[in-house]
Write a protein that binds this DNA or RNA. Structure first.
Lengths: 226, 226
DNA sequence: GGAATAGTGTCTTTAAGACAATATTTT
DNA sequence: AAAATATTGTCTTAAAGACACTATTCC
């Protein structure tokens, strides 16, 4: 039986949020080689004495950088190869995650090495490894899911208005959607309850909706935005 | 800086096909511990001197067991944990793949240790590791994709009739579909051309359709089977 | 011609798109 | 009342479901 070199295995996170109608991704500045000084995704090695699965590794790393657990976390894809890390063959399991901007804002603002980057301004940024490609894959997945589910609610606090959700979805998919369609979906999904309070917004007060704690993400049978 | 134990990393394949209207999965009998004598998914270690990515590992292992490359291959999910392998923390990247039964039949038939297992008869089989769970995840993914794409064509040879495709889809999703809807989709997808020949089937001869070589998998905006 | 299977025509259904009309709130 | 935003009503549209009808082939 052959003995194989076990490739280096890491976990990386594409943490998204939406702020001012712009999709943002969390990046951290590398302090050590390779790619020292470039921006990279928050991630690292599995600690088998602490993590009971790679999901926990992902959550642990996100908690470290943001101070909170994300509202949503899901495996994205494995990226592997000989050339993505100059040290040799490597494998990274990429996750993507969603969080409300308000939940992490204070923590990120005080951190030197962590920043929200507008995904539309990534071109100009010096990025480490193949992390631009990983972010692009995360974007595609998020965009797809936004068409047939209400996944984007996880970019908002537990309570939110229809207009807020509409703007978040539009930031993610890049095209306007019908407010009416969104209301029909909120209703049909069974994932939310109407809060007692309403909130003012310049005109008529808006109904607050609130995520039901253990509701599964509902999948619609059609896409929005045809 | 802490030194981490690098967990054991493997690649496993859930290779599906459909034969006699039954969804089948390829399994191999383990010849060494742990789980010696039990059935498991075809997979193994990355060989960094031979594989330029984990995709190639998956393809190489499938070629070894079946003699051919699958018609379709896609990452499924990573499974990890302390308890899935008695030797300690392990990580496996599961792929799922599709192949035409005819393409591999002869090769499998002569192999001692490889067999097609009807996915509906897995309960009775002694299966190694968490491979039942991995197969279940593969099934769910295949089923979902069968609702909004024509992925099941990859369980058929390059040329096929509508009736064959209909039966394959029904085996995968477990409910009957409208022949008419399928024809509309074949047409709309742009993935196929009509072959010159027709083929007999007991009554009127059936049109053969054929996969266009470089067509991408088309995603419809609605699900079948509502 | 009859049985069997393939393919067409067309009406219904469902959920999204469009957008006008109404409601509420602040100034 | 006017401006601004929220919500409802309702007609249109697109693609799937249902299913009757026609076409082809073999016996």
């Amino acid at each position: 039986m052959t003995i194989y070199d076990n490739p280096q295995f890491t976990v990386d996170n594409v943490l998204f949020t939406v702020e001012q109608n712009q999709l943002m991704v969390l990046m951290v500045k590398r302090t050590i080689p390779p790619f020292q000084g470039r921006w990279s995704l928050p991630g690292g090695f599995v600690d088998i004495h602490q993590d009971d699965s790679t999901d926990m590794t992902a959550r642990r790393k996100l908690k470290q950088k943001t101070g909170v657990l994300p509202n949503y976390l899901e495996q994205l894809q494995v990226f592997s190869g000989l050339t993505r890390d100059p040290r040799g063959f490597s494998v990274t399991l990429a996750y993507y995650a969603l969080v409300a901007y308000q939940h992490v804002q204070s923590h990120i603002a005080t951190a030197e090495d962590a920043r929200w980057i507008n995904v539309n301004q990534l071109d100009e940024l010096p990025v480490a490894f193949d992390h631009k490609e990983i972010i692009a894959a995360g974007r595609r997945r998020l965009e797809q899911k936004a068409l047939y589910s209400l996944l984007p609610v996880y970019c908002l606090p537990e309570q939110f208005t229809i207009t807020q959700l509409k703007e978040v979805i539009e930031a993610i998919i890049g095209t306007p959607i019908q407010r009416k369609s969104l209301m029909r979906r909120l209703d049909a999904s069974g994932m939310f309850s109407e809060a007692d309070q309403k909130v003012d917004s310049g005109g008529r007060k808006a109904q607050l909706y609130q995520r039901l704690p253990n509701a599964d993400l509902y999948h619609f049978e059609r896409n929005l935005g045809g």
